[in-house]
């Protein structure tokens, strides 16, 4: 559906996007991750035809966005980083105007608008001036704008910014639903969001793709050990000694006393060894009750930090 080949954007001497290539299949939800200034928005702006690439090309459904912009733009709904709203229009005037410039005509126009207002829950503010709306509502009006005309491709730049936690969950579910019959690219720096919504994640840093995989594969591929976080009632020294005797332990570390009479321990083990049962039996034998046991999988946060700070190629 979307093909990006060697996309490069240069601002004078500054290289904002450095020959990025990727494809997005029809019906896929792709997450774009990266620190601020990594080139996420620039890439999205090129994909939607707002700015031109210095080199490379972007194809939407086989149509070059630079060569046949009007054809390609018909298939894209875009929510930029700052929702492009006219403050002195009411919500329904604004959506009317967007329908106009998107060339939506006919009997379905009104129905389409109503459906979208329902979907993003802005029906109750339709008569209000946009400049008087809260950030959350503005964001949702922006989202509504991108959905008008039911485009096949949705490009959403940080769609949940400014929303409260309940709205965030609603919008995420909405995006998941939309993902069933839309191709979606979504950028975010909220990592749980990306892992909750996206089927595939591309992490970019300094204009380059540093990682690209499913969220699960990313966390699995990077973790080269399995870690457990434990809280055990007992003397620190004797507890550590008892754990040390187990097989397959790579690293053992006391995290100190957080609760009187107990000790917090971090155990790093060989990924092929499941330590939880042996640990339980060992502690039971020594009568040190285990108060807490938590598996410390590598989260997307860890991966993100690792790939964006160490500049290590992850595959």
């Amino acid at each position: 559906m979307i093909q990006v080949e060697n996309l490069t954007k240069r601002y004078g001497q500054h290289l904002a996007v450095d020959s990025i290539s990727f494809t997005v299949e029809t019906g896929e939800i792709l997450g774009f991750l990266g620190p601020n200034g990594a080139g996420k928005s620039t890439t999205m702006n090129i994909l939607t035809g707002y700015i031109s690439a210095t080199e490379g090309q972007a194809l939407i459904n086989g149509i070059d966005i630079l060569e046949q912009p009007e054809e390609a733009k018909k298939m894209i709904g875009y929510l930029p980083e700052f929702p492009p709203l006219y403050g002195d229009m009411t919500v329904s005037e604004y959506l009317d105007f967007v329908s106009d410039i998107k060339g939506i005509t006919g009997a379905n126009r009104k129905k389409n608008m109503e459906k979208i207002m329902d979907l993003v829950k802005i029906g109750d503010v339709r008569g209000r001036m946009i400049k008087n709306l809260s950030k959350g509502y503005k964001q949702r009006v922006g989202l509504a704008q991108s959905l008008l005309g039911n485009p096949e491709v949705l490009i959403l730049d940080e769609p949940t910014v400014g929303l409260d936690p309940k709205q965030i969950i609603e919008i995420r579910n909405l995006i998941k639903d939309l993902g069933k019959d839309h191709t979606i690219i979504l950028s975010s720096h909220i990592l749980p969001e990306v892992s909750a919504v996206c089927e595939r994640v591309i992490i970019i840093n300094k204009g380059k793709i540093v990682a690209s995989d499913t969220p699960d594969n990313l966390s699995r591929g990077l973790g080269n050990s399995s870690r457990l976080n434990l809280r055990i009632a007992g003397q620190e020294k004797s507890v550590l000694k008892a754990i040390q005797e187990l097989h397959g332990i790579i690293h053992l570390e006391s995290l100190g006393v957080r609760e009187p009479g107990t000790v917090d321990v971090m155990v790093e083990a060989d990924p092929n060894v499941d330590l939880r049962r042996p640990l339980f039996h060992a502690m039971a034998r020594a009568s040190y009750p285990i108060l807490m046991m938590k598996s410390m999988d590598m989260t997307l946060e860890d991966i993100f930090l690792q790939v964006t700070t160490q500049e290590k190629e992850v595959r």
Binding site: E70, K74, I76, P80, P84, I101, K102
Partner: peptide
């Protein structure tokens, strides 16, 4: 200034 040019320039209108 309001970045609404982003809407105009990314809509299917020349």
């Amino acid at each position: 200034k309001q970045k609404t040019d982003q809407l105009l320039l990314t809509s299917p209108i020349s």
